[in-house]
């Protein structure tokens, strides 16, 4: 496993809240190899963003505690000093978000912000930094990059702002890019362009990508491997083809079935996952998914359910995984 770019081992992230301590990420492990796109999927509230933000420890230090290991370039990021961590953030690991506005400064031009980001970690003069900024913008497919340099963030469309964010994230030539729902707020046509761009740039920069999304269509488009999260835990991980051909966890199956596919019959109801993700104050005993699972057995609620390894790169946190992974239909695959 030493050729991994990032290795997250048994990560736990807890918050102190007015109503007590809650654990948003509870024993999560996964890895990203160089050049690989690893997807993290799950409904909102499952702990995807907290996982991503834990890697760079971007959460409020006064109320957040971490345990486990985040191995990157020979270091455990959770053990690094704040100074050393700053040399990782925005230098070797970059992050892009759903809302680029939150990461761009409204009172500075695109050119100033991008040039400053480049100057922060490249020993080059201002002139060359500007030229490099224009080159990066052009790479992201923004029309007329030179005139964009003089514009302010609010003068750009959502898709163009996301391109600027990507240019900014790539300006340091990162080894790892963490993308937290970067296309969720965009039109489908723009989303398709941004996904294509990320793939092209990943190949050019040879970076690994941790791609967070709640959209399985996006997973099908760009991920190589996938981690499915439910209520702070990994419930299934595998390569993208196995995930779509042979999903083993009832939650994964439910997510797939409730997406109206091209074969969805307008005469039929869509399969649903009943209920909703509970809050962290109401984590169920035993299997966390039991109250929403169509295949629940009494024993599911009576024991802690461990991740069960099904094959080389496939594991599922379900006592019925073995039955499900063999493709047994089990009354509509566990979907209501």
């Amino acid at each position: 496993m030493s050729n991994n770019l990032l290795e997250v081992i048994d990560l736990r992230t807890s918050f102190d809240t007015e109503r007590g301590n809650v654990t948003a990420v509870d024993g999560v492990s996964f890895s990203v190899a160089p050049g690989e796109v690893v997807g993290v999927v799950g409904e909102s509230g499952c702990g995807k963003s907290v996982t991503a933000e834990s890697i760079l420890q971007l959460l409020d230090p006064s109320s957040t505690s971490y345990s486990g290991q985040i191995l990157f370039g020979g270091d455990n990021l959770l053990r690094l000093s704040e100074d050393a961590l700053r040399k990782v953030r925005g230098y070797r690991i970059s992050m892009i978000f759903q809302d680029p506005m939150s990461a761009l400064n409204p009172v500075f031009t695109i050119g100033d912000q991008l040039t400053e980001a480049i100057l922060a970690h490249k020993r080059i003069g201002k002139r060359r930094a500007r030229a490099f900024a224009i080159e990066l913008l052009a790479k992201t497919g923004i029309p007329e990059p030179e005139s964009r340099m003089r514009q302010y963030p609010h003068q750009l469309s959502g898709g163009q702002r996301q391109r600027v964010m990507i240019a900014m994230a790539l300006s340091c030539d990162p080894e790892l890019l963490i993308a937290d729902e970067p296309t969720t707020a965009l039109d489908v046509t723009t989303q398709a362009q941004i996904l294509k761009l990320l793939i092209e740039l990943k190949d050019e920069f040879d970076a690994g990508i941790l791609f967070i999304t709640h959209d399985l269509g996006v997973v099908a488009e760009i991920c190589d491997r996938v981690v499915v999260m439910y209520l702070g835990e990994v419930v299934e991980y595998t390569d993208v083809h196995t995930l779509f051909d042979n999903p083993a966890h009832p939650y994964t199956r439910g997510l797939m079935a409730s997406t109206p596919g091209i074969d969805a019959d307008p005469e039929d109801d869509l399969p649903i996952i009943p209920g909703a993700v509970p809050t962290l104050h109401h984590i169920p005993q035993g299997c966390r998914f039991a109250e929403r699972c169509a295949l629940v057995l009494p024993e599911c609620r009576q024991q802690t359910i461990e991740l069960e390894v099904l094959s080389d790169d496939h594991a599922s946190r379900c006592i019925r995984s073995a039955e499900l992974a063999t493709g047994a239909s089990l009354s509509n695959g566990g979907v209501r």
Partner: peptide, 18 residues
């Protein structure tokens, strides 16, 4: 353009460009 932008529903449908 709208219809070709819809995300695919299975990874085997990726075009070589993608």
């Amino acid at each position: 353009r709208l219809l070709t932008s819809v995300p695919i529903h299975h990874p085997s449908l990726r075009t070589s460009a993608k």
